[in-house]
Amino acid sequence: MTLLVVTAVQPEADAVRAGLDDRLTVTAVGVGPAAAAAGTARLLALAEAGGRPYTGVVFLGIGGGFAGRVEIGGIAIATRSIAADLGAESPDGFLPIDELGFGTARVDADAGLVATLRAALPDAALGTVLTVSTVTGTAASTTKLTARFPDAVAEGMEGYGVGCAAAGLPFAEVRTISNVVGPRDRAAWRIPAALAALTKAAGALGLA
């Protein structure tokens, strides 16, 4: 499989490259689902036009982990990436786009890629990774998310966008954890630990 590996920002790309020894192309495509989708789609189109198409896409990045499901410095592998805030508000609560009949907020990860990553990273948490445009920063918002997605292990801002851009190609999302999802406390973030875990996670891609 010829994998396209993408991250949101350059420090993540650098951490991933450190674990790959230049075996795969790694590109930062931007923060948020729209930028990540556009950047990924452009890279896929350029590769196909050049006669060297990619046959799979993997997003690696740092993110928040849900308490009790994955620790800071740990690794989460997505079984599916869900756009958790794509939908509409209503007096009865949030209505996901699936219920509105306008498509789906879910991209399933490729079972083969997930199995390969999990075999190489047996301590990783496995479950839903949520994509949000606004990072969760209150206890109330966290409670609502965990009620809607009881199998959610982590939160980020790009996975669903990258998964949509993959457009049927095998796709996977991996998050390493810099902070606990909940009340925003920047002083408690452990970004160096998450970047170090990202380097470790990248090594698993050499097996894919």
Rank of each mutant, 00 (worst) to 15 (best):
M1S: 11
L3H: 07
L4D: 01
V9Y: 08
Q10R: 14
A13Q: 09
A13Y: 05
D14C: 05
A18Y: 04
G19L: 02
D22E: 13
G30N: 06
V31H: 03
G32H: 12
A34V: 15
R42G: 03
L43R: 14
L46W: 07
A49F: 11
R52W: 11
P53V: 04
Y54C: 09
G56C: 12
F59M: 13
G61D: 07
G61I: 01
G64W: 02
F66Y: 15
F66A: 03
A67T: 14
R69W: 04
V70Q: 03
E71P: 03
A83S: 06
A84F: 04
D92A: 12
P96R: 04
P96G: 08
I97P: 01
D98V: 08
E99A: 14
F102L: 15
G103A: 09
D108H: 09
D110K: 09
A111N: 03
V114G: 07
A115D: 14
T116H: 13
T116P: 06
D123Q: 14
L126K: 10
G127E: 02
L130Q: 07
L130C: 08
S133F: 06
S133G: 15
T136C: 05
A139Q: 14
T143Q: 15
T143A: 15
T146P: 02
F149E: 06
A154T: 05
A154E: 04
E155F: 02
G163C: 00
C164T: 11
A166Q: 00
L169P: 05
L169S: 07
A172F: 10
S178E: 10
V180T: 14
V181L: 10
P183Q: 11
D185S: 06
A194F: 14
A201Q: 05
A201E: 09
A202T: 07
A208N: 09
